[in-house]
Amino acid sequence: MKRKWYDWRNVYLWLVFLLLYAPIFYLIFYSFNAGTTMTHFTGFSWQHYAELFADTRMIEIVLDTLLIALLSSLLATIIGTLGALAIYGIKKVWLKNSILSLNNILMVSPDVIIGASFLIFFTFLGLRLGFSSVLLSHIAFSIPIVVLMVLPKLSEMNHSLIDAATDLGATNLQVLTRVVFPFITPGILTGFFMAFTYSLDDFAVTFFVTGNGFETLSVEIYARARQGISLEVNALSALMFLFSLLLIGGYYFIEQYNSSKKERRRNRMEAKLIK
C-alpha cells in the first residue's frame, strides 16, 4: 500500500514538533521587536542584540556558564565512567544493586534539597562560594547521569571480547584502552552531553551555591525576571538556540563522516580479500 503524503502518523509527528518548537520560535521572533514587550510587534530592529553585546556582565556570565558546563561535564564523565567500570566489576549482586540504588537516589532527589545540602556542606567546610563551589556541585549531580549512560553499554558488551583479548596476551590496561573504551565510547559521549545539558540549565542547585560575584545564566535571568523579562534575554535565547543547532548539526556531520570513512575502509579491506 502506497503511503499518502498526509499519513496520520506524520501529521501527529509534525503536530508534536510544532507544539514543542512554537514557544521557542515565538521567543526568537520577538527578539527582533523594536518595542520592549512580547505583546505587540511594532517593527523589526536589531536593538536588543546590540544591547546584549554591550552588556559585558551578561557576556561574562554566558562564558562562565559555558565554562562550568564543559568543565563539570568533562570531569563528571571521567569520574562517572570509572565508577561505571567499578560497578560493572562488582561480583556480589546485593552490593551492586545497593550501589546502583544509591546512584539512582541522587538522580531522583529534588534539586532544591541537593542545592540546600550543598550550601550547608560548603559553608560547614568554610569553602568560599563561587566558581569552585558551583563547579563541584555540578560535577556531583552529573556523575549519576554519566554512570547511568555508560553502564548499559558495558552490560551490552560481550564478555568473551575481554576474555579473548586477555587470552591473546593483552595487559589489563590494553584491554581497557583497546577493547572496553572503544566499545563504550557512544555511552560515554551520550553521558557527556547529558551532563552538559543538565549543567547548562540547572537553576535550583546553582542558585544555592553561587556567590561572591559568580553567577550562571539561569540564576541571572531569573533574578532579572522580577522587572519583567527584557527582550535582551530573547536575543540571548535566540543565539543560544542557534549555537545548539550548530553544535548538533556539527556532531551529526562528524558522525556521518566517520561512519562513511569506516565504511570505505571496510569496503577496501573486503576488496583486498576478494583479490
Binding site: 550550601l119 550547608i120 560548603f122 559553608t123 568554610g126 569553602l127 568560599r128 562560594l129 563551589s133 542558585f207 544555592f208 553561587t210 556567590g211 561572591n212 560575584g213 553567577e215 540564576v219 541571572e220 531569573y222 533574578a223 532579572r224 525576571a225 522580577r226
Partner: peptide
C-alpha cells in the same frame, strides 16, 4: 559588584548561611 536575588527569603537564607561577602 552587583549580585541579585528574587525574594527576601532567599536573600535571608544566603546571608544567614554565610560563605559570602
Amino acid at each position: 559588584q552587583v549580585e541579585t536575588f528574587d525574594s527576601n527569603e532567599a536573600m535571608f537564607t544566603k546571608i544567614q548561611q554565610g560563605g559570602t561577602n
